[in-house]
Design a protein around this nucleic acid. Structure first.
Length: 849
RNA sequence: GGUCGAUUGGCGCAGUUGGUUAGCGCGCUUCCUUGACAUGGAAGAGGUCACAGGUUCGAGUCCUGUAUCGACCA
């Protein structure tokens, strides 16, 4: 779309709508899938969680990637830049529950006519899993529209014909296929083991989803009883787990307790006999130096339990309450009564009850001592995690395998990290793993684990007899589909089958974004053109989850790295340098931001945030961006208003010098972009642009007007045109709208596909960039004389004398006529040769009035 | 507690392989209004680079320690 006219009064108004429509029509950002891998630049874009709200951080980091994508596209690469939507998992479930006022009850039958109420009622309506999933899908479609609208408006140059959803059929099939491949290679396995468990969501939680929170707790000094009746004190923050106690433990070197190792003691209230054992993890400094091991109070309990081969005595159920049935190991009547008194209580209430009973029996010594200590939470949960023994699926990630861990650490070393120090975070995480990747979740909305289990003749599931689907049937839902060789009426009956009720962890699917976007196993033609990807842009806090899990899957599936580069973006901080948060009410709605400042201006601000660096939200920076865009319009209007001339007309030394300086800028910007340093590329371009406007444009005005002759004018015009063209190209990745607008005034096609400038062509004109500095210095000093005299820049000067080195005088002499005109100096310069700084003196011309 | 990063003019940031007067934007001061631009233009003031020590002919730029801030992990 070329108008070939320069508007009277250029404006930023309406440029976004105009060019978005134009790009859409022309397919400017469409991926050319005839390109071979060498000509492709492929981006493993982060699929935003659509059920989350949009915030400025999205705008920030996606702009970074887009700048790089646009640069690559301009260099001639076919950019594979698809957008994905992450609609998996808990965030969506939660949002659906609140939005429609429903909750999922998998035991209910599907109601094909179900419609959520118009008004959300006070009590959540229970609906079937299938109805629930339908609502999830309905809502995510709406959410995706809002996201797409923002990305388009921001000028993100993705190919909107290539979007994917992490819950879409294709993603499900790929996710299930990858899992089944893991299973067939023994990289996925199931295990009955103590698992971190969120009692609110009633699901297992992976190590990567944990976080420690400081919580108040209290030490209870509780007495156990030696066979001789003597009291042995332990200190615990969890007296409610007394019934789950399987042993007491002290450090092997602890002389206080060495005599007790190998003996047994009896627990208070319950009267259960437990051994006293030794383990190095017991801290003699902590409490009384001897602790009770329960199954399970914390992760240390799990280690003791496993390494000391202790029995399992679980008393906490999946709902976080004390299991109601009195356990078999409690044999005393008193113990059974005590247990019954706490059965069904939450851990919190049970704690109080047990403390009270211990007090009555005289087994609680002294006062309860309040402390603050770190407690493990599910990052999305708000109740402390419990540890429950369950059967779960795992994928090997090196957490229990030295060799695999070493390979994965090595993979991290093969990635080029931006910035480089982010690799350390990866290494620390991988080296600190202490278990495999738990991927099964007891949730509803997600990719189902694609397996069934045979049911024996007594009607019990045979967990080790896993039934898998045919590959051609993927994706499948084991709760409604049948395993090969079975019929639906065999579901749940003796000799039949039962489907795995769980879904996969959201990261189990997200870890396959390159495979999903690139068409692994479903579109081999596309796959071989884009894999492995060039870059994964993402935030640093999910290196341990998304980045690592993607490396794991690619390593296991393809024995390759999923991408060459990892570009890690920083956080957005509010102007007080605090992390922006909703609760503080300082979250700015991105679309309002775009309305107020314009997309180019917001992009300018985003691009000023360097890779991996946290950046303050700064409206001032957006205003500067807007000013830059306006300046670009006006400077372009002026340049084009002079008319253009062929590059062959470039002859004036100062013109050639300008192009030589511009060539340096092109080289610097190119090098910066190649290193993913878009900020640097913008900086050098912007700096040159302002100098160009302030000095060169002023310097050559008179000459361009033709006051120095036709040839001189042609040289000026040709130089201005080449410079403008190059500057538009350099700015195009950052300011796609205004550059495209100006481009359309005088060029064919889109600036975004018209090529990246080449410095060699600019240098071919000869010229010495240093000449520019000398000339600019003289111009500045001429202005200073007027500024200090407090007169207008149009005031005349005479008797101008320049003292400078011979080399500088040579440069200045070549541009003398331009300088005389721009400075309104009458007569000629007098030159004096002297080493050192350039010095200019002149007299103000006496006014005639 | 561990790891990593940061500490440069009032504020926000650049400073690549160590090398003459440490750059930029905002803000500030003074001046200029109407021939690209008042969402403007020109000139100028203002830092010795957190602190202490070390390596070096020479350090903001490398090393050690301390302090403060932040992130990630325990």
């Amino acid at each position: 779309m070329t108008t070939n006219t320069v508007p009277e009064k250029p404006s930023l108004e309406g440029l976004e709508q105009k060019w978005l429509a134009s790009w859409d029509d022309a397919g400017t950002y469409a991926f050319d899938r005839t390109a071979t891998r060498a000509d492709v630049f492929s981006i493993d874009t982060p699929p935003p969680t659509v059920s989350g709200s949009l915030h400025v951080g999205h705008v920030f980091s996606y702009t970074h990637t887009d700048c790089v994508a646009r640069y690559q596209r301009m260099t001639g690469k076919k950019v594979f830049y698809p957008m994905g939507w992450d609609d998996n998992g808990l965030p969506t479930e939660r949002r659906v529950q609140n939005y429609f006022g429903v909750r999922c009850d998998p035991s209910l039958p599907y109601d094909p006519n179900f419609e959520p109420p118009a008004e959300v009622g006070k009590d959540a309506i229970a609906i079937s899993r299938r109805n629930f999933v339908e609502l999830c899908e309905r809502l995510t479609v709406e959410d995706e529209k809002v996201f797409e609208e923002l990305w388009r408006r921001l000028g993100i140059s993705v190919d909107w014909k290539m979007t994917y959803q992490t819950i879409g059929a294709r993603s499900q099939a790929i996710s299930q296929r990858a899992f089944l491949n893991n299973l067939s290679r023994n990289e996925a396995y199931q295990s009955e083991a103590p698992t971190l468990w969120d009692v609110t969501f009633r699901t297992a939680v992976a190590q990567a989803e944990l976080e420690d929170r400081e919580r108040p707790g209290a030490y209870h000094r509780v007495s156990f009883h030696k066979p001789d009746g003597e009291k042995l004190f332990i200190e615990t923050t969890r007296p409610e787990l007394l019934a789950a106690c399987v042993a007491l433990v002290a450090h092997p070197d602890d002389e206080r307790y060495q005599p007790l190792f190998g003996t047994t003691v009896t627990s208070p209230l319950f009267g259960v006999e437990v051994p006293v054992v030794a383990h190095t993890l017991a801290d003699p400094e902590k409490g009384s130096g001897i602790a009770m091991i329960c199954t399970f109070g914390d992760l240390t309990d799990v280690i003791w339990w496993r390494e000391l081969q202790l029995p399992t005595r679980p008393i906490i159920g999946w709902d976080g309450r004390i299991i109601s049935e009195v356990p078999a190991w409690i044999t005393s009547e008193l113990g059974q009564n005590v247990y019954s008194a706490t059965a069904g209580l939450t851990a919190h209430s049970a704690k109080e009850k047990i403390a009270e009973l211990l007090r009555e029996s005289g087994d609680l010594e002294g006062e309860i001592r309040p402390i603050t200590h770190p407690v493990k939470f599910f990052e999305k949960g708000d109740k402390p995690l419990e540890i429950v023994t369950t059967r779960q699926w795992y994928i090997r990630n090196g957490g229990r395998d030295e060799k695999l861990r070493g390979e994965l650490v090595a993979r991290g070393g093969e990635i080029t990290w931006h910035p480089a120090h982010m690799q350390v975070r990866y290494e620390n995480w991988v080296e600190g793993l202490n278990g495999d990747w738990l991927i099964s979740r007891q949730r509803f909305f997600g990719v189902p684990l694609p397996v069934w289990y045979a049911v024996d003749n007594d009607g019990h599931p045979k967990w080790d007899e896993v039934l898998v689907p045919n590959d051609s049937d993927l994706p499948i839902d084991p709760s409604s589909d049948c395993p090969p060789g079975y019929t639906p009426d065999q579901r749940g009956v003796a000799g039949g089958f039962i489907g795995d009720p769980d879904v996969m962890d959201t990261w189990a699917t997200s870890s396959l974004t390159p495979q999903i976007a690139g068409g692994w196993s479903v579109d081999d033609d596309l796959w071989q053109r884009v894999w492995p990807f060039d870059v994964r842009p993402q935030a640093h806090e999910i290196i341990r989850t998304w980045l690592f899990s993607t490396v794991v899957r690619a390593h296991l599936e393809s024995n390759e790295l999923p991408w060459k580069h990892a570009a890690i973006s920083g956080w957005i901080l509010d102007p007080d340098r605090k992390k922006m948060s909703k609760s503080k009410g300082n979250v700015v709605t991105p679309i309002d931001l775009l309305d107020e400042h314009g997309s180019d201006a917001v992009r300018y601000w985003a691009a000023s945030g360097r890779p991996g660096t946290d950046t303050a939200f700064d409206v001032g920076q957006m205003k500067i961006g807007r000013r830059l865009a306006v300046k670009l319009l006006n400077a372009s209007k002026f340049v084009l208003g002079q008319g253009t001339a062929p590059a062959s007309a470039i002859a004036a030394p100062i013109d050639q010098a300008l192009l030589a300086a511009l060539a340096d800028v092109v080289d610097q910007a190119t090098a910066a972009f190649e290193a993913f340093n878009y900020t640097k590329a913008l900086e050098v371009t912007e700096s040159f642009f302002w100098a160009f406007c302030d000095d060169h444009l002023e310097l050559v005005k008179d000459r361009a007007y033709g006051l120095a002759g036709a040839d001189e004018a042609e040289s000026a015009k040709a130089t201005l045109a080449v410079t403008l063209e190059t500057l538009l190209q350099l700015f195009a990745p950052f300011l796609p709208f205004v550059t495209e607008e100006v481009w359309s005034w005088w060029q064919e096609g889109s600036v975004h596909t018209g090529g990246w400038p080449k410095s060699a062509a600019l240098r071919a004109h000869g010229g010495d960039a240093q000449a520019l500095d000398a000339v600019a210095e003289v111009l500045s000093q001429l202005r200073k004389i007027k500024s200090e005299a407090k007169v207008s820049m149009k005031a005349g000067l005479e008797n101008a004398t320049i003292t400078a080195s011979q080399a500088q005088i040579d440069f200045i002499g070549q541009a003398a006529s331009d300088l005389l005109a721009a400075g309104r100096v009458s007569g000629d310069f007098n030159f004096t040769v002297a080493e050192g700084q350039i010095l200019v003196t002149a007299d103000l011309t006496a006014t005639t009035e």
